[in-house]
Simulated scan of single mutants.
Amino acid sequence: MIDLDDTDRAILRVMQGSATLKASEIGRRVGLSQPAAWRRIKRLNEAGVLKPRHLDLDLEKLGFGVTVFLGVKLATKGRVSLEDFERAVTAIPEVQTVQHVLGMYDYRLRIVARDLPDFERILRRRIMTLPGVGNVEANVLLSEEHLPGPLG
């Protein structure tokens, strides 16, 4: 864990709003020169605080209007390894995230589909045929709000 001061937290808050800002703009917003902001961002990056950046696509505009969170309970933990399930489920292009969780289900998947019939096809033909899948529970995403996180 890295020790963060108020300036580091301010930089992270600014970057959460827009990760494409240049160090000069970040520095201006938090009261630092461009070189000072760049050094701090570099230190945060080297410490692993900043994860590799990825492109955040608007899936709805690309034709994927339905997002489903699917809880998956493995039927036979002893017969199917977790690695076999994870390897098989990550090969499905519509599966965006695979989370191994503690609770009622063993895994929580985030799946995108064009519509509900498309999700049903993915569920029947791809998910339910995976090794070890037992019970599933689907929750359709109605809306989503991104929050800044615990940087207070």
Rank of each mutant, 00 (worst) to 15 (best):
A23Q: 07
A23Y: 03
S24I: 12
E25Q: 12
I26F: 01
G27E: 09
G31T: 10
S33V: 13
P35W: 15
R40M: 01
R40N: 05
R43W: 09
R43T: 10
R43G: 08
L44H: 01
L44N: 04
L44T: 06
L44M: 06
E46Q: 12
E46H: 10
A47D: 13
G48N: 05
G48E: 08
V49F: 08
V49D: 07
L50D: 07
H54I: 15
L55I: 13
D56I: 14
D56E: 15
D58L: 06
D58R: 05
L59K: 04
L59G: 04
L59P: 03
E60H: 10
L62G: 10
G63V: 11
F64H: 05
F64M: 09
F64P: 02
V66W: 09
V66C: 03
T67C: 11
T67M: 14
T67Y: 14
V68G: 04
F69A: 06
F69N: 06
L70C: 07
L70N: 05
L70Y: 02
G71W: 10
V72W: 12
A75Y: 03
T76D: 15
T76A: 14
T76H: 12
K77G: 11
K77I: 14
G78C: 04
G78Q: 10
R79V: 07
R79Q: 08
S81E: 09
L82I: 12
L82K: 06
D84K: 10
D84V: 06
R87K: 12
R87D: 14
A88N: 02
V89D: 00
I92C: 00
E94Y: 00
E94G: 01
Q96P: 01
Q96F: 06
T97P: 02
V98L: 15
V98M: 01
L102D: 08
Y105R: 03
Y107T: 00
Y107L: 11
R108V: 14
R108G: 05
R108W: 09
L109R: 00
L109N: 01
I111Q: 00
V112K: 03
A113T: 00
R114L: 06
D115E: 10
D115C: 03
P117S: 02
D118L: 07
E120Y: 14
E120T: 11
I122S: 04
L123E: 09
L123C: 06
L123Y: 13
L123G: 05
R124M: 10
R124I: 09
R125E: 15
R125V: 08
R126Q: 15
R126D: 15
I127G: 00
I127A: 00
I127R: 02
L130W: 11
P131N: 10
G132S: 01
G134I: 04
G134E: 11
N135G: 06
E137G: 08
